[in-house]
């Protein structure tokens, strides 16, 4: 954003050759790795499917139609809204939302704790947060599966302490998926919040306390509003990849918790093998994410005026 909007720049500055050449690499990268794939996806979503993957270059709305409507077994009945895919989307949104809340509940205190340590030890804490992420996501998710299964160490421990009588059934539930997503994306929540809490001026807390606010009130009415940008950034960074995730739902959720990510994956790699439909589902997902981001931008702008 900063690069694009040299504030108060004159017309000559906008067209200055230096500016052009400096920005060129960014434009090339953005164009090549962002715009081209999205356009490709958009095009594919309007093509006709070939039997086993691939496409026929023929315009068709079939994919979007398939997503939204049921036209009977032979495709000749009057269209009725089909809930199968819409439900998958709704479930995915709820799962991603749950994971984001989870990350927020654990991530905020963590980030706050780190940001209030003496400067020298902060780096060590941050380093510790990232250590688990040196291990591949797949392996981490599989180990999570072992951890939480009925006869896994977590249940064994709880049984041993006597907190529970029978193993908690966690694996293959929505909760398991949220747990997996939480574990996958926690640092994306912690780091932005850490950055904003670190910049938070703790005099604000003292002022509030001087003006008769209790500790809880200070948290709600002063700290949270001031570090809000970090919280929102972290939430987006967790919510968006959670929405499209397929590893955690596949491995921890079982068949009942099919999510968008798995649906799309299935169209390209799996049995379904329907590229245009996969592309259409991706475009719908992308639009959803864009809507969420637009709300965020709107909220940010309102805050600044």
């Amino acid at each position: 954003m900063a690069a694009g909007t040299g504030s108060g720049s004159t017309v000559s500055a906008i067209f200055s050759p230096v500016r052009f050449w400096l920005l060129l690499p960014s434009w090339v990268v953005i164009g090549f790795f962002l715009l081209v794939p999205v356009l490709l996806m958009l095009t594919y979503s309007f093509l006709t499917k070939e039997f086993r993957g691939g496409v026929i270059w023929e315009f068709s709305l079939a994919s979007y139609d398939q997503f939204l409507f049921d036209r009977g077994l032979f495709g000749d009945e009057a269209p009725v809204i089909k809930w199968t895919y819409i439900n998958i989307f709704i479930r995915s949104i709820l799962q991603a939302f749950g994971a984001t809340i989870f990350c927020l509940l654990i991530g905020f205190p963590t980030a706050y704790f780190i940001a209030t340590r003496p400067i020298q030890s902060r780096t060590i804490w941050l380093f510790l947060i990232t250590v688990p992420y040196w291990v591949n996501l797949l392996i981490r998710t599989v180990s999570m599966k072992f951890l939480i299964r009925d006869s896994g160490p977590l249940n064994e421990l709880l049984l041993y302490i006597g907190l529970i009588d029978a193993p908690l059934h966690v694996i293959n539930t929505n909760f398991a998926v949220q747990l997996g997503l939480f574990y996958s994306y926690l640092p994306f929540m912690v780091l932005p919040i850490y950055a904003s809490v670190e910049r938070y001026n703790f005099t604000f807390s003292e002022v509030a306390s001087d003006l008769y606010a209790s500790k809880v009130t200070i948290l709600w009415e002063v700290i949270l509003p001031v570090v809000k940008p970090g919280i929102i950034a972290g939430s987006i960074l967790v919510f968006v990849p959670s929405l499209g995730a397929f590893l955690a739902p596949d491995l921890l959720g079982g068949a009942k918790t099919f999510m968008i990510g798995s649906l799309i994956e299935d169209q390209f790699k799996g049995n379904a093998g329907n590229w245009p439909f996969g592309a259409a589902a991706s475009m719908i997902l992308l639009s959803l994410v864009l809507v969420v981001l637009m709300f965020y931008v709107r909220a940010q702008n309102k805050d600044q005026t």
């Binding site: 005099t203 604000f204 002022v207 001087d210 003006l211 008769y212 001031v226 809000k228 805050d303």
Partner: peptide
């Protein structure tokens, strides 16, 4: 007494007006 229980108020060196 903690600060929020003292009938004393402070004007801080850097003002610290709540930005939000």
């Amino acid at each position: 007494l903690p600060p929020n229980k003292r009938p004393v108020n402070t004007v801080f060196q850097n003002y610290a007006i709540f930005p939000h």
